[in-house]
Nucleic acid binder design. Sequence first.
DNA 1: TTTGGAATATTTACAGTGTTAACTAAATTT
DNA 2: AAATTTAGTTAACACTGTAAATATTCCAAA
Lengths: 213, 213
Amino acid sequence: MGIAERKEKQKLEIRKMILDASMKLFVEEGFNHVSIRKIAELIEYSPTTVYLYFKDKDEIFFNLHDIGFKMLLEANQNLGSIRNPLIRLHKMGENYLNFGMKNPEYYNLMFIAREPMKTLQNCDWENGDVALGLLKATIQECMDKGYLAKNDAHLVSLSVWSHVHGLVALAIRERMEKFVPQKEMLLRVMMESLNWLVNSIDISGKDRPAKTV
Amino acid sequence: MGIAERKEKQKLEIRKMILDASMKLFVEEGFNHVSIRKIAELIEYSPTTVYLYFKDKDEIFFNLHDIGFKMLLEANQNLGSIRNPLIRLHKMGENYLNFGMKNPEYYNLMFIAREPMKTLQNCDWENGDVALGLLKATIQECMDKGYLAKNDAHLVSLSVWSHVHGLVALAIRERMEKFVPQKEMLLRVMMESLNWLVNSIDISGKDRPAKTV
DNA sequence: TTTGGAATATTTACAGTGTTAACTAAATTT
DNA sequence: AAATTTAGTTAACACTGTAAATATTCCAAA
């Protein structure tokens, strides 16, 4: 069945063309300026052809958001060598902040925009799970080894995630300008905030564990 | 010049009509479904009349976002009686989480959407400042009275804010569904996360202060 | 009271959006 | 060679924000 295979390949190729074009538009011009017509122009097809490969615009965004997650996971490849789980947690946070500030449009799609979630509905958010699973495992390890006060790892993961997400979300939506007027300082301040959090929850250097909540 | 006064009043009245109509639309149908034409229809004027009272759509959103801040400040009226600054901080966080979950569309406008910030540009974000000033003052008081480790109050404010913002932002953009499947549990889990944070940073019950960062 | 000009509002229009239905041309199967 | 499936296009619908030109209303001075 060489011919059916080739067709399949061609189909995937056009799908990829569409995603590449969308990505180019949305990284260069931002989320709001990506339109089906512009995508079509870039790939030199008619606008309606796009609908032969994707159900609607949201489905395109969903696929891009997925690519974003792969990028984030890749950025976390530098964690394997870190033995101390608290330092690893810290580094994970740094990776997260770096990723968000370097790829605000991807970050938007992954964690802020409503659009990709419509396509997702009750299905998987698979890559989201992987990323957050990694966080949870690290935090569990921190608790097991006495770096963090024993607590519900689920809750603490959510908390740490919320913290770094809050930093990135406020920063890229320009809500920190009053707090941090100079843009070139932003990332540094965010790193300091992460630092503050990790130091606040670290109980390894203290005489007695923090009271359990 | 009673007549000029009356004119001024009429002008403000129509402005208010526009804002009321926008608010109605955007609370009932959500941010994305507010259009100039629908606003115009509601107030029974032609679409372009709106532009005589507001520069553009963003300016309308800016005004609504401002109303949101007033609501949030009002929700914080219950803080005055709380003497203990750490408990006050905790309550502020609870108010914040409650506000966000009860008024997701306002919250969006105040802290997530890009639109109102365009109108703002380098100007004030006055009400934003007031709200955050309140947070900073409380945190400073916590440090002065030994509830929190002495540190840059600015940084800690930003951190606490980021934490609660992260919770609300993830929740209303449906990124917590994997972590907290049941919607009716959401607010409770968020409250627990806040609780975890406050307990983690509280040093008042410990023998020695946490190491300074 | 009439007239002129300012303020207010509307009509029309432009350039764009996502998406659907109807149609055509090419490729594949029968 | 004829029939059928597939791939792609054109035209159209129902929207969007907004600007320019036009019409209407209102008020003050002549």
